[in-house]
Amino acid sequence: MNEARVKKALLALGICFMLAFCLSPFVWMIVVSFGRNPDFLSGGVEFAATLGNYVDILTIKSLHFLEYLRNSLAVSGVVAVACAMVAALGAYAVSRIEFRGRMVLSLAVLAFSMFPQISLIGYLYKFMRSFGLINTYLALVFPYIAWTIPLGFWIMLSYMLRIPKAFDDAARADGAGRFMIFRKIILPVAAPGMFSAILLVFIAAFNEFLFALMLTTDQSARTIPVGIALFEGLHGEIPWGYIMAASTVASIPLVILAVAFQRYVIQDVTRGAIKG
């Protein structure tokens, strides 16, 4: 039949387009990061491979790249673990304890994930300033936890709803309290959910821009996205080699995480958006 052949051709075409579309900017970023001269496409200039951009961003102190990286890893790491923990506690209660308002609470948490960041940042800035927290990790950690809670909560909830309540019943018959059951039984069973929540929240926090832009002022708390956005040369020119090298260093860990754990990502990104 002819249809099978047409479909096969279309599929091959589609795959080629998809790969070119998704990969070319990423590959371009990496190529420029290894080039001595970002203008090698402008005719007359040869591409010269070098590790110089990487050596420079890692060793020139005034670029502060390592400090931005350290800040990003510290803030995102703390936020990911704390958020998953808080979300797991909440999801445990909502999934297994009959209390008034559990439905409203879940829907409200979901609604909060849709609040635009711009509608929080003005007040957050004044709040952090009044406590002298501008340009500290704390100024980022708390807003980030709140901002990523919906993601973590819905992931944990979908995992916990699938754990049979018989687990709880058996333990309660043996006299175990709620918190004991949570810690000793449910949390270990829901470990893949915890892992997934930590992974996705880490990626979200690592990417965050507007809060970090307003709430930090220099390398003592500034994160990688803000550092990369504000990267400027000493003489006003844009140091593309440095920026692409910094971008590559910032992206590779996330890309590796996403690709290595694509099953979790595909499953739980969807859960956050489509109910349970």
């Binding site: 990423f26 990417n207 996403a258």
Partner: peptide
């Protein structure tokens, strides 16, 4: 293929923005 499609999703928005800024550079 699924892994490839995840790459733009995983790249930080600011990194993507900087890369596209360079892609649109007038001279090179």
């Amino acid at each position: 293929l699924r892994a490839t499609v995840l790459i733009p999703w995983a790249v930080p928005t600011i990194v993507a923005a900087r890369t596209w800024e360079l892609i649109y550079n007038y001279g090179y």
